[in-house]
Write a protein that binds this DNA or RNA. Structure first.
Lengths: 285, 285
DNA sequence: CCACTTTCGGAAAATCTATTCTGGTCGAAA
DNA sequence: TTTCGACCAGAATAGATTTTCCGAAAGTGG
């Protein structure tokens, strides 16, 4: 092994060096490389033993890793990250960050891509906070019950709601629930819901402006005697009104674009809550 | 001397306590107090010996100092500053919180559906907060530039990443970018990327365990000379390594299910940032 | 399938760190 | 000036932590 003549002197350089030499590293060393890249802060200030445990290797392996990059020992490598942490925190004080942030949020100067990201982080966070207020214990319980009782779950969502619907369908399928994702490929929407019956559930996700397909599907499902769980931005929206149960999700709007995190979050929670209940009742028997 | 009954629990509290009791301290202890107030970062992560040398006192004096404020030893006091540094600037505070959170969650008996929702709200919020720390200004700018320069954008994401990819494709299309969503319907994946060329961009979204399709697609795109923008959980993942640019997104894991909010949020920000830049350059002419 | 090299795990050894303890200094009060 | 008590420097100690080392395991090339 030919150790780097002069080891990287900054955290950034080391990062680059790791990326560069990653392929040439052995399996265990790659494992460590990965952890170092993923959790630089942990590497910076936890002890070797802790880092070793969290990344699932032996302490000695970490020393080997550091040496393979030309350092005298693991400690020298840690110092890089420590210094980086220090300078990074010192140069941009807390108040400065807040100022930058609020400035970008107040939407004055259009700002570059980074400011845009900050805005969306803020918007999504707000939407999430609001979620647990609009969707209460009662609604969640009822929703999970609906899913549990359903023979087959049909999931529908178009345009902006499509990602949420696809996620819901995918993860319900993952937890062994009989699921049909009504994606309308080839315009076969009507055919796909045609089989829905009295024991089935349609989960419809739709926001303003409500897609025509969704509205029709809800109507169709109701006509066939199926249960309907709506996820929408209003309790009186065309998809929520006829539904058996409606969950209200209010997304934040940023620069004319509505966020999606709250909906995704709700979908995740629904699936996992269902999964837990299903396994719980299954093990009872 | 009457040591504080309950020692300060945060760095800020300790700061206040020091200022409050400063007059009553002995000469050497005042000297240490000054150093602690002036260089909290050094106190946070240097060893006692180093701190002692820099502030011109004996290590034992620092221990006395810590004890006089009610701590068991100097280490406990250091922990405050360490935690403060983390939660404020970097993301170990983040991963640490996540660890504690999931631990407390996993340890307890499974809550009801409402608790599940609360958990996911918390997890998604954490992931969001972390996002703006791992994806910096430089990366965002570069990513937007890649999108802008591309003739056609191909978007790919399977399994868990599918919702993100579909959202990205949908909204890029909305803002009038030439976009191809590689959904692999009917197993036509290879055919769909076949047309990708030197002036095109592939946006690949993939998380562990990396879908075989994604890895192959990235390889194919690189082979054809196209640019690749990867959104992944590690910079050395099989989809990130060969990419022109890789954005690292760390999602929280709750009950073995990873969240998606951070990825969705990043996707949104990318699209809007691109849209703004596109209209800006268009109106310039 | 076998020799040879690389890599790894685990425990022992060396180093470093935090804390305690002791003897002594300084200053104030009597 | 003497006495008392607080305070401190520095050595000593107890405890971790990092690093080294070596046999075993896993690859590699012939």
């Amino acid at each position: 092994m030919s150790p780097t003549p002069t080891p990287p002197q900054t955290a950034e350089e080391l990062r680059a060096a790791i990326l560069d030499r990653y392929e040439g590293l052995s399996k265990r060393l790659q494992q460590i490389a990965r952890y170092v890249l993923d959790e630089p802060n942990a590497v910076a200030l936890e002890t070797l033993a802790v880092i070793a445990e969290r990344s699932g290797v032996q302490p000695s392996a970490i020393v080997r890793f550091a040496k393979s990059f030309g350092y005298e020992g693991a400690t020298q490598m840690q110092r890089l990250f420590r210094d980086g942490l220090l300078s990074g925190a010192a140069s941009v004080g807390y108040s400065e960050r807040v100022r930058q942030f609020t400035q970008s949020v107040n939407g004055r100067a259009a700002g570059g891509p980074a400011e845009m990201l900050a805005e969306f982080v803020e918007g999504n966070t707000l939407a999430l906070r609001n979620l647990s207020e609009t969707v209460g214990r009662k609604e969640m319980t009822a929703a999970v019950k609906l899913i549990s009782k359903a023979e087959t779950v049909y999931v529908a969502g178009f345009r902006r709601s499509f990602p949420v619907a696809s996620y819901l369908a995918y993860s319900l399928h993952q937890v062994d629930k009989r699921t049909v994702f009504v994606d309308g490929v080839g315009g076969f929407i009507r055919q796909q819901v045609h089989a829905i019956g009295r024991d089935d559930l349609l989960i419809a996700i739709s926001y303003q402006p409500y897609a025509e397909e969704s509205v029709q599907m809800v109507a169709e499902a109701v006509a066939r005697g199926a249960k309907v769980l709506s996820i929408s931005d209003s309790l009186v929206s065309p998809v929520a009104k006829p539904a058996t149960l409606a969950l209200q999700v209010k997304e934040t709007e940023i620069r004319k674009f509505r966020t999606l995190s709250a909906s995704m979050c709700l979908a995740q929670a629904l699936v996992i809550a269902y999964a837990f209940e299903a396994t719980a009742t299954a093990s009872k028997r």
